[in-house]
Amino acid sequence: MTTSRPGVTIVPIHGKTPTIHDSAFVAPGCVLIGDVTIGADSSIWYNCVLRADVSRIVIGERSNVQDGSVLHCDPERPGDPDGSPLLIGDDVLIGHMAMIHGCTIEDRGFVGLGAIAMNKAVIGSDAMLAAGAMLTEGKAMAARELWGGRPARKMRDLDDAAIAGMRAGVAHYVENGKAHAAALDGASRA
């Protein structure tokens, strides 16, 4: 695990420093603050903000957070001793400009472009929150469901073709992260 990357702003706070697996790609322009953990082969794309100054953000393996997304969490409060950490499993896709706050995204979950997921919401395994949708506080999506709208509601179950498409997206982002890391490394040597 590393705690520095060229062009990435890494801010330790309250005794916590972001940790990034050596195989993960974090693009220049990103800001990582506090208790952030990024797993193997995951990718955080250009101009994302991951601010874990009051709780923690955990991102599993092979997950990606696409350009311009904002991730945050909430601290413990009276009546809520656990607070709202942001927990992202393995093989998760988070689309561009998403706002993800204090929720749980289970393995292979998908968050569409510009979608919002709020505190204590759950996106189940192989489930998809549609582009532009808003999953309100405490709502839980079961496995293989598609939810959309503002506020988000279940639209239908996902078929095998949709699940296969999401898995192909995960594989693409792992390889694309490696390509961007190599391109940036080459540019810095030129």
Results as ranks from 00 to 15, higher is better:
151 P>V: 04
36 V>Q: 06
93 L>E: 05
104 T>H: 01
6 P>W: 14
157 D>T: 14
116 I>H: 01
42 S>D: 15
151 P>R: 03
117 A>T: 15
139 K>Y: 04
152 A>E: 03
93 L>Q: 11
66 Q>A: 09
188 S>P: 04
21 H>G: 13
52 A>C: 02
77 R>S: 13
121 A>N: 02
156 R>K: 14
174 V>R: 15
105 I>A: 00
130 A>E: 11
126 D>M: 01
157 D>S: 14
154 K>M: 10
95 G>W: 01
166 M>W: 11
44 I>H: 01
172 H>D: 11
62 R>V: 01
188 S>L: 10
160 D>V: 08
94 I>N: 09
119 N>D: 15
102 G>N: 02
159 D>Y: 13
71 L>P: 04
29 G>L: 05
116 I>D: 00
102 G>H: 00
54 V>L: 07
73 C>N: 07
128 M>F: 10
66 Q>L: 09
145 E>P: 12
39 G>K: 14
166 M>V: 11
88 I>H: 01
166 M>R: 15
162 A>Y: 11
144 R>G: 07
53 D>K: 08
14 H>C: 04
1 M>S: 15
185 D>S: 08
1 M>C: 13
35 D>N: 09
69 S>Q: 03
166 M>I: 14
25 F>Q: 13
90 D>E: 04
99 M>P: 03
165 G>A: 15
4 S>W: 02
187 A>L: 13
61 E>S: 12
170 V>K: 07
111 V>W: 00
23 S>N: 04
25 F>P: 13
48 C>R: 13
131 A>V: 05
40 A>L: 04
145 E>T: 15
19 T>L: 13
186 G>C: 05
180 H>G: 06
63 S>D: 02
72 H>P: 09
166 M>P: 05
129 L>N: 03
62 R>A: 12
107 D>L: 02
142 A>N: 08
101 H>M: 04
17 T>S: 09
138 G>Y: 01
104 T>D: 00
42 S>E: 14
55 S>V: 00
62 R>L: 12
182 A>P: 05
112 G>I: 00
29 G>W: 05
147 W>C: 11
16 K>T: 06
16 K>C: 06
31 V>L: 14
66 Q>D: 08
169 G>V: 15
75 P>D: 12
125 S>G: 00
88 I>W: 00
102 G>A: 00
26 V>H: 13
166 M>E: 08
79 G>W: 03
49 V>W: 06
68 G>L: 11
95 G>N: 01
159 D>Q: 10
132 G>F: 11
108 R>Y: 12
19 T>F: 10
25 F>A: 14
14 H>V: 07
93 L>R: 08
62 R>H: 11
93 L>Y: 08
180 H>F: 15
40 A>F: 00
169 G>M: 12
100 I>N: 02
41 D>V: 09
